[in-house]
Design a protein around this nucleic acid. Structure first.
Lengths: 209, 209
DNA sequence: CTCCTGATGTCAGAACCTGACATCACGGGT
DNA sequence: ACCCGTGATGTCAGGTTCTGACATCAGGAG
């Protein structure tokens, strides 16, 4: 038996989520979170740079799983399908914690400060995806674009999953959302064929890879 | 002559930008900003909810201009072109303040806290765009998608404009970026034709408007 | 002339976050 | 068995952000 209770990090995360649920994000202090975890405010800030960050510990794992899945995806897939497959690969991470994810989502949605943090996490996830695609030979502009589209799909799919009473897996919603996106894109007017388009910029005319 | 110097709001914005440039965002306190503007810390917080917010006063105008432009765009345009035209309509706002915009951009880019704020502003701008598109009869899913694409275009175009030594207008870069996007999309693999796609979700199969 | 209004100031205090230093069980080396 | 280094935690002091409550006072309305 160690000198201290183990898993301080997880205890803090749990205590925080509980308290945010009970009293709301604003009305719970870091000191209270630490106390419920049997620790000190100072220790909280050793594990998390921020009060907000305690809700975003998982985003690193998420990015890793997605990047790995992109790297291991079959070469025949187009970029968007590659990203979709990678997003589906995160399904197991969430499937075990549906209730937890729902609570977390409610808290994040309820406070602008937390939505900001979520957005920047998704943004850097997008950067990571774009980078992975480029490593597979996708041109820079296309990689960024597809990555952004992938993020959009993920956001939407995740929302559907969280509020899905039928308990479909996240992967299911990713596929559905992607299909929706393709319908919207194929409706012709959305991402239209080159119509009155001016010449693309020089950077886009460079050969890819 | 009034009791106080006029334009407290603008004075605060200017003082903040100057100081952020001189010492960096973190190392300038709100008290210093207020002092340079000839005011008090307390007064600063009457004008801005946040230390960050002092750099984002313009985002409301921006959204208004874009929404208005979408409302007034020719009906023949497809949704993406509509958004592009609306983005171009913001050109005059920025053209007068190229130097100012560059300074601001550098400060925002230098600090994660500020990038977070920028992202949430762009996100709500995206919501406003999607809403405007829906009012023109664009289906919900398509509207969101096109809005996100529009935001992506705007971000990229703005970066190009800020670092453009040739002094092309923002509108020019919007057109170029959009063309790049279309090239990427048309490369076939990016937003591919309906291939192995599963059936779209019920919501997407609903009739639009 | 008086009174009200609204922009600003003053003050106190809570909460967030950081640096510096102290504590002390545990485990390894001798 | 003893000593010592290490690492997780605690304690303390202090700066900064942000808010509520109340005070001030020029200028305009009546």
């Amino acid at each position: 038996m160690g000198r201290w209770e183990p898993n301080a990090y997880e205890r803090l995360q749990e205590a925080a989520l509980e308290l945010f649920g009970e009293r709301g994000y604003e009305r719970t202090t870091v000191e209270e979170i630490a106390a419920r975890a049997g620790l000190t405010e100072r220790t909280f800030f050793r594990y998390f740079t921020d009060k907000r960050e305690v809700l975003f510990g998982g985003s690193k794992d998420l990015a890793e799983v997605i990047v790995a899945a992109i790297g291991g995806a079959p070469k025949e897939l187009g970029p968007l399908d590659t990203v979709a497959v990678a997003l589906e690969a995160t399904s197991p991470i969430f499937e075990a914690r549906r209730a937890h994810a729902r609570k977390r989502q409610a808290v994040v949605a309820s406070h602008a400060e937390l939505r900001e943090r979520e957005l920047i996490k998704l943004s850097s996830l997008g950067d990571a995806i774009a980078e992975s695609l480029r490593r597979r030979g996708v041109a820079k502009v296309a990689a960024s674009l597809v990555a952004e589209a992938g993020i959009a799909v993920f956001k939407s799919a995740f929302e559907r999953w969280v509020s899905d009473t039928k308990k479909h897996e996240l992967a299911h919603h990713v596929r559905e959302t992607l299909a929706d996106l393709r319908v919207a894109a194929a409706e012709g007017t959305a991402v239209a064929a080159v119509r009155t388009a001016p010449r693309p910029s020089r950077s886009a005319r460079r050969t890819s890879t």
